[in-house]
């Protein structure tokens, strides 16, 4: 289960930022997870709770924002939301599509107490 290793990486990043910003208490951690990244939100939530319990992040809230897939067709230039799992342009049926979003795996925001 790679949700555990993803959760550990999130905690590492949060700790780094807290140190850089000389902040102590984090209230909220917002992460953006693309639909195409095989991370199960419930499972990530569970792992985050498990590894932060009893630590300085113990009462922080993890907010998972799912980023839908968007693509642009390289043949006709139009943008669309592909019917996953196939990546086919609904306008011209080209399979030459470039993904604009949906592969994110990022910590985007922290809410901290000053």
């Amino acid at each position: 289960m790679h949700e555990m290793s993803v959760a550990q990486s999130i905690v590492q990043i949060v700790e780094e930022v807290l140190q850089e910003q000389k902040a102590h208490r984090v209230l909220k951690v917002v992460v953006r997870i693309g639909e195409l990244v095989a991370v199960v939100p419930e499972s990530l939530q569970f792992c985050y709770r498990a590894i932060t319990e009893g630590t300085e992040l113990g009462d922080s809230e993890l907010v998972i924002q799912t980023v839908p897939v968007r693509a642009v067709c390289q043949a006709c230039g139009r943008e669309f939301s592909p019917e996953t799992p196939f990546f086919i342009c609904p306008f011209c049926e080209s399979t030459r599509v470039h993904l604009l979003q949906g592969q994110e795996l990022q910590v985007s925001e922290l809410e901290v107490e000053e």
Binding site: V6, S9, I10, I13, Q21, L105, V107, E109, V112
Partner: peptide
């Protein structure tokens, strides 16, 4: 309370 914009890749260390 303060909101920090972070935008860091979670798998950056691995990358």
């Amino acid at each position: 309370m303060k909101v920090l914009t972070v935008e860091r890749k979670i798998l950056k260390k691995n990358d």
